[in-house]
Amino acid sequence: MLLMPKRDWQWRYNETHQVLSVSLGDDMEFLSPYKLKSLIPDAKQPMEFSVEHAKFYIDLVDRLSKTLSLTDAQLVQIALNATAAHFLLKPQMPKSWFFNVSHQCVYSDVGKLFQLTSTEHSVVAMVIESGLQASLVMIMSAECRLTESKSLKQFETIKVMHDRLAPLPVVSHRVNAA
């Protein structure tokens, strides 16, 4: 069932799980992967799921449903995580050095999927915030190894320069959301 925003939705910091969550009413709660250290100070207090948040969420669900074959639950999971990241994560500096330069010019847009390639592997990432020279992307693959000891899990974010974003091969448009 595709969840659509309601007036009683609210962002909260879940002390038990120590992550940002969205209270969806009717005793339902969605837990994001975002821990306190990565959140803006306002995210520590209960906050409404605003009209701006709802518009971003709905637009993303609509875009993803047209480009990917996902279940409603996967769409909701991706869209809620992207909405949380877009509005409630602290700003990041680009960390492009982890990825190879793409030799194709791309247009970065919120909700668009790209490939990031390092010397070891390639991962799928979705733009959740696009700037003039860099984009904040959310990792869509299960894991993104950055170094021997550092990796990003699915739905974690990293900011990269646009020249690191490569078009996805046509066969890679399948994303396995957890």
Results as ranks from 00 to 15, higher is better:
Leu132Val: 11
Ala177Gln: 08
Asp27Gln: 14
Leu68Thr: 08
Leu152Arg: 06
Ala54Leu: 09
Gln154Phe: 09
Arg164Glu: 02
Arg12His: 10
Phe99Leu: 05
Leu2Ala: 10
Ser172Tyr: 08
Ala125Lys: 03
Ser21Lys: 03
Val137Arg: 01
Phe155Pro: 02
Gly25Cys: 04
Leu36Lys: 13
Asp26Val: 05
Ser122Lys: 08
Leu2His: 04
Leu88Val: 00
Phe155Ser: 07
Lys35Tyr: 09
Val101Asn: 09
Val110Phe: 05
Ala84Arg: 01
His86Met: 01
Cys144Leu: 07
Glu156Asn: 06
Gln133His: 12
Asn176Glu: 15
Ile40Pro: 05
His103Val: 04
His86Thr: 04
Glu15Leu: 15
Asp27Leu: 11
Glu148Thr: 09
Tyr57His: 08
Ile158Tyr: 04
Leu113Gly: 09
Thr71Met: 07
Glu129Tyr: 07
Val123Phe: 05
Arg7Lys: 13
Ile128Tyr: 03
Ala85Pro: 07
Asp109His: 10
Leu80Thr: 10
Gln18Met: 11
Ala54Ile: 04
His121Tyr: 00
Thr147His: 01
Cys144His: 06
Pro167Asn: 09
His121Ala: 09
Tyr57Asn: 09
Val76Ile: 11
Ala54Gly: 11
Met93Glu: 13
Lys44Ser: 15
Lys153Gln: 15
Thr83Leu: 03
Ala73Pro: 00
Ile78His: 03
Lys6Ser: 14
Ala177Glu: 08
Leu64Asn: 03
Glu29Arg: 14
Lys6Phe: 07
Ala79Ser: 15
Asp8Thr: 15
Gln77Tyr: 05
Gln133Ser: 13
Phe87Gln: 02
Glu129Ile: 01
Leu165Cys: 05
Ala178Met: 12
Phe98Arg: 01
Ala54Tyr: 03
Gln74Cys: 12
Pro46Thr: 03
Ser23Leu: 06
Ala177Lys: 00
Met93Val: 14
Asp59Pro: 04
Leu3Tyr: 14
Lys66Ile: 00
Gly25Lys: 02
Leu2Lys: 11
Ala166Phe: 06
Glu156Pro: 00
Asn14Arg: 09
Ser23Glu: 14
Ile158Val: 15
Gln77Val: 00
Ile58Asp: 11
Gly25Trp: 01
Met138Ala: 09
